[in-house]
Amino acid sequence: MVGAYIIAQFQFGPDQASSLAGQVDALFLTLLAITGTILALVAVTILYCLARYRRNAQVDRTPIPDSSLPLETAWTVIPMFIFLGMFGWGATLYFKKNQSPSNATEIYVIGKQWMWKVQHLQGKREINELHVPVGRTIRLIMTSQDVIHDFFLPAFRVKQDVLPGTYTTQWFAGTKTGSFPIFCAQYCGTYHANMIGQVIVQTPQDYEEWLSSGTTEPAMALSGANLFRSLGCSGCHAVNASVRAPLLNNLYGSPVPLQNGQVVTADERYIRDSILQPELQIAAGYDPIMPSFKDRVSEEELTQLISYIKSLSKSTDR
């Protein structure tokens, strides 16, 4: 009874709750097998030599050469190939983890000392909790209001630093319902250890129900559209405006030629930078006349504005 209780305390791996989890564990176990074998071989050889060639033992000690090029080459080249294999496999997973998936449900996350603020496109907000439907690919668009944080989901085998002043993204797809921990993995000050929460993976029906429960707020794009008017953006970025400014229809995801000849893709970071530091990247053919909205919009309002501008693009699946 006590024994069973004690054994139950030992857990050898975290939950596997995402499509990526099994793949990361497979690589981990393979590396464990390879390195474990090499470590065991080295240990056995050492222990064998220590026992057999102890000082007083009467054994064959005919000197061997001091060095051997074939041997050195072998234990340089063979590990190198094994390492290259590990590199390739690890990099493949990483590229997969960093590829922006199409058809993802987007959710905005803002970190601050010491909580996670989440807003869904439909307008629903939550703190230190993240409700998602099972089986659906979720793309998190994350930023920080103060220091660097890190949104770590061990059961999904993903983490990503959350930086102030820019957006980072990560995606995952939950494969089973339940609640799984969120940890802040980047030290962020006194109550770093309290910056934890739960991902609640629900059936799509439960998720829909949850979205429409409680106090409802306008969808993020709608809040953004209101801000777009109240901040005066629409005064210039409109067809019949008196000032010539780029139209934002179909902007998101499209290439933008800049005045300096560069071409950038209009992603969340570009739109954010253009609102806060419009002088940095001037769209080709336009005058640098836009004022900065730094300190005039909060991080939440920025995500709503971006969400609105993105909704003006037909091409993206929302």
């Binding site: 981990f28 080295v42 061990p154 993903v158």
Partner: peptide, 25 residues
């Protein structure tokens, strides 16, 4: 030799990008 080898080999796990994402920090 034993402990350094064990430490070095767990470094191979950390250098593997896909695993580092999970165990970093």
């Amino acid at each position: 030799i034993g402990l350094f080898a064990a430490g070095g080999m767990t470094g191979l796990f950390l250098a593997a990008l896909g695993i580092d994402v999970h165990v970093h920090d």
